[in-house]
Simulated scan of single mutants.
Amino acid sequence: MTPSASLAQAILGPRDRTQPTRDRIETLSQEIASGRAADTGRALSSDFSQVSRLAHGLREGRASIESLSQAQTWGAAIQASLARVADVSARQMADLPVNLANPDPAAISRLSRGGEEGVRDIVAALGHTVGGRALFANGGTEPPITTVDDILTEVSALATAATDFDDYIQRVDAYFAPGGTFETAHLSVPATDPTRFPAGGGEVVTFEVEAGSDELVQALRSAATLSGLGGASFALTPDARLTLQERAANAAADLPTLQGRIGATEARVGDRLETLRAEEQQAEVDLSTAVGVDPFETVSALQNEMTRLETLYAITARRAQLRLTDYLR
Rank of each mutant, 00 (worst) to 15 (best):
A240K: 00
G115Y: 05
E154M: 12
V299E: 07
A199K: 07
D239I: 03
Q303C: 00
A159H: 14
V217Q: 03
T316H: 13
R120I: 11
V119P: 09
Y168N: 06
L216W: 06
E208H: 09
M306A: 15
G61R: 14
D16Y: 12
R62F: 07
E246D: 06
T316K: 08
M306W: 08
S4L: 00
D254R: 10
S69C: 10
V130H: 02
Q50F: 04
F136G: 09
I32K: 08
I32D: 07
T257W: 11
D294S: 03
A80I: 10
S227W: 07
A162M: 02
F234L: 04
V148G: 05
A162C: 12
L111D: 00
V299D: 09
A134C: 04
R261Y: 03
G57Q: 14
V293F: 01
I11Y: 14
A86H: 04
T163F: 12
G75D: 00
E215C: 05
R36P: 01
G292P: 02
L328C: 08
S288H: 09
V189C: 08
R120E: 14
A249G: 08
R110W: 09
T141P: 11
A235K: 00
V155Q: 14
F234H: 04
S6V: 02
T153K: 10
Q282H: 09
M306F: 15
T73E: 11
L135K: 02
R36I: 05
A90M: 10
A137Q: 06
D271W: 10
S109I: 01
R36N: 00
G231D: 13
L324F: 13
A5V: 10
L229Q: 09
R241F: 05
S288L: 01
P194E: 00
D294W: 06
A248I: 10
G140M: 12
Q218Y: 12
M1F: 03
A219N: 08
A63S: 15
A157W: 15
